[in-house]
Design a protein around this nucleic acid. Structure first.
Lengths: 197, 197
DNA sequence: GTACGATTCGAACGATCGTTCGAAATCGGT
DNA sequence: ACCGATTTCGAACGATCGTTCGAATCGTAC
């Protein structure tokens, strides 16, 4: 079944690219047929429909992100190093897989029913991972503020697809450094000023 | 012509609400007719089509944001105060007009042709305003890093629509404080660490 | 009440969408 | 060379979309 898997991978890769370019809803199955080199009907041999295409793109990408983040974090013991490893992994992975990550970020509410639930379950685990890291670095903070801080960080990282060009002057490593320093530096600052007065 | 303007305002407000809920593309003109209380054909007396509806929602909202930011910034002389005023205005305006701002942030690429160009022109002025503030506070920084820092900040602020509940425990003022302190504290930190070594 | 512009809307149009179906083509084992 | 399973696809279907059109209704000045 190797050629089957390769064809499916190719279809999903092209779907991610076109979804990222034109958006999920405006993209037609005819667009995807042209991009993948398959016929319109031929795609339905590999996939149940358009929504499953989006689901598979998101699920495969998000699973890789979650696993990669876990491994990156596990390589460090110091809480700040673990947080930095999480940020660095997320940003560099984002820059290396812009199409899939844009689809994951921008089309978060395009799925419905069980597919949506499955993706949200992964998201829940991923957010929990980050909030756990924040708890390690700032154990006294309230849960709601920790959650807000997590989403503020996700905002910095996930907004990337709106402006960042991986082939531009700013390479992914420096972007990861910038975000890491802004958040870690600012997070410490925010805690002291908020708690101090 | 007062009743005409009121009807148009009402139509645009309902369109912003439904666009924010379901997304621009999945929303049908029949959805908007039901939400606004007009008939399907009746809406075309006020608007040329679906895309003009999106354009008017975005243009009116973005114009208010740009003008409000200019006024907020003009009230201060100290560069850090001006930057803080910009952030505070953006975040509180966002929280007070979630539907319109979500449509502005999330449907940035849904417009085409001249409409898209008009919105992008406003965006250009808004980004320039922030980059000017960053230049005031960090005059030695390179233009590309300043631009990246601006988009990192926009990421924190515009991602709000994905998680923030204005009726929840965290009120808009405290959210504005959090983002302001994270960015200003982290921005200073990032500059010193990047330039220092 | 009547005339006239402003406003509303039921009904329908053509276009395009996601999906399906049955047949054709291809492949791998014998 | 042959056969069954796997894979491909042209053609078409029903549904739904944005938009249009012409008539009906409304408000108002005379």
């Amino acid at each position: 079944m190797r050629p089957y898997d390769e064809r499916l991978d190719h279809l999903l890769a092209q779907a991610a690219r076109v979804f990222a370019e034109r958006g999920y809803h405006p993209t037609t199955m005819r667009d995807l047929a042209a991009a993948s080199g398959m016929s319109l009907a031929g795609m339905y041999y590999y996939v149940k429909g358009k929504e499953e295409l989006l689901f598979l793109v998101q699920e495969r990408c998000f699973t890789r992100v979650l696993e990669g983040a876990g491994e990156a974090v596990a390589r460090h013991r110091d809480p700040l190093d673990r947080l930095q490893a999480f940020i660095r992994h997320h940003v560099t992975f984002f820059a290396a897989h812009m199409a899939e990550m844009k689809v994951l970020s921008h089309e978060a509410n395009a799925l419905t029913g069980e597919s949506r639930r499955r993706i949200n379950a992964i998201k829940r685990r991923y957010v929990d991972l980050l909030e756990g890291l924040l708890r390690e670095t700032a154990p006294v903070e309230s849960a709601s503020e920790r959650s807000a801080a997590a989403y503020v960080l996700f905002g910095m990282m996930n907004w990337i697809y709106n402006w960042y060009d991986p082939a531009g002057a700013l390479d992914p490593e420096r972007l990861a450094d910038l975000i890491t320093r802004v958040f870690i530096g600012g997070f410490a600052e925010a805690r002291t000023t908020v708690q101090g007065g």
